[in-house]
Amino acid sequence: MNPSNYIILSALLFGIGATGVLVRRNAIVVFMSVELMLNASNLAFVAFARMHGNLDGQVVAFFVMVVAAAEVVVGLAIIVQIFRSRRSASIDEPNLLKY
């Protein structure tokens, strides 16, 4: 089996995640889709590390996980905050910033 299959899998997951961000309205699900995209890129990093034979790719993937964790914490706190004031978790609701 060719190791580039991992990369292609990562591309598929990334595309699915992107579509999810665009299609879903529930902020939590949108957030999950973003996490999916991050994970897809992590998979690519790990596969590249293996193909190139050094561990830098894995280290970067590790940092991506750390940053993603921080992002989830803040993002979910914002979602809770929005939900508190608007009683809704839809990202179409906060649409006042427009023409």
Partner: peptide, 17 residues
């Protein structure tokens, strides 16, 4: 052009994509 500023985050994300 400002008509494209719909306020919908998903529209913006679409154009970003």
């Amino acid at each position: 052009m400002r008509k494209y500023q719909t306020g919908f985050i998903r529209s913006y994300a679409l154009s970003m994509l």
